[in-house]
Design a binder for these strands. Structure first.
Lengths: 133, 133, 133, 133
DNA sequence: GTGGTCTAGACCACT
DNA sequence: GTGGTCTAGACCACA
């Protein structure tokens, strides 16, 4: 696994939330694939120099979201993600996120063409499920 | 002052951190200028429906960073030695938001062309400051 | 509040899950009402002779299910429960629970009329939302 | 032996506890009788798709309670001094399940008559042992 | 004072 | 050895 986590304990985001976010992003970018095993709670805790409980909390959160499957005594694995929401609900959530993004852009005083170009470029970094890798 | 704060109490970011961030961004955009007065703690607290202590914490944080100056009995002002965000810093923040957005899209199992088209459409509907309304 | 929690540390069910279950049942039976404040984490921990973290975990679980609302610095409150699932989904979940119940009855070698009567009687103990109290 | 075990790995109850409980219930129902042989650890593990150690733990637990006797090289047998569940104990277990069911119903915002009717209907569809099929 | 996060470290259930 | 639960106790964000 070429994926590496990194956390900062002085971040405004709690450590466990940083792990959650990075895992989600790793999966979305295709670096972590369906069925792949994540580092064990203890290993990741050692690597990040945090308490195992903190990693465990992140993993539990991810399992609740259906992103991970943990098999007791075996480890934690990326689950085959299937979203059960209706198209309308999914659109609503997505558009909300886009708006957040645009609000941030405006706050940062970024120009429209820059935003468009940067979004496009960032999207290229993502491996979409079902596409050639 | 055309600048408006907006906070969500269920955000993963604490309210005080949202205020800090938005103030920084206001300065970065040039909407908040050196020497300009910020709303009083009480006014902003009333406007955002949060506890005055929360606003006070945010202002203290900003003062510690040298971004604000508090003059007894007069109020809080944007400091002369304003630390504007560099283009690189602004890009980093924005790309982070875009990634959040795309991560969500992948987990929602949305197709690439749909994401591109929906982003474009949402951006078109979005009023950009300084453009004709 | 006349509601009392009780946990057994030697139960097959984890302590935090016992708290979750009892809270859900308290709400369902109408003993805990919408908007009512639950005991604070520390109070309940002291009362049950368990660690505050254990109670906190239970409350967080309940909040995630939308059953509780916690207001930072203020406490935890029973939220106005509104179920967003479709009728078909709700029926499916409920029928699943009924089947569990009947399977248990068969395992316990209970007769059909007894099961019917006991179910009816237990239902009478529940205050249904929207009914006179 | 007409007795069948069934476990769910995502139950809140550990798998080994499910086996323990079902064995006790089988005895309570009289389906498992004194002196009768239980499936071997390996057979049951294969049937339930669980780890043999898990079954072994359950059997050990049952042996410690004096419910089972293990005879070296021969297998596990229901002990002579069987501890049958009393009617009161069986009622308590069943009512617990009914409560779970009703708690869920209230949280799903189902109406009282609907719950009654749906329970009745599900029970009718349910094959009861000893009745004509 | 209230809930949220984190650490250190123990023990349990399970593979 | 892997994840799950729990304790004791600290510090932070918030009202």
């Amino acid at each position: 696994m070429t994926f590496r986590f990194s956390v900062r304990s002085n971040s405004e985001l709690p450590i466990f939330a940083q792990i959650v976010r990075q895992t989600k992003e790793g999966i979305a970018r295709g670096v972590l694939r369906s069925g792949e095993q994540l580092p064990t709670v203890r290993d990741l805790a050692r690597e990040l120099l945090v308490n195992p409980n903190t990693v465990a909390k992140a993993y539990q959160e991810l399992e609740r979201s259906g992103i991970l499957e943990t098999r007791r005594g075996a480890g934690s694995f990326v689950s085959g993600t299937t979203c059960t929401l209706s198209p309308a609900e999914r659109e609503k959530i997505f558009v909300g996120k886009v708006r957040d993004c645009l609000t941030e852009a405006v706050h940062l005083d970024l120009a429209r063409p820059y935003v468009r170009e940067r979004f496009e470029r960032t999207m290229k970094e993502y491996r979409w499920p079902g596409e050639e890798s």
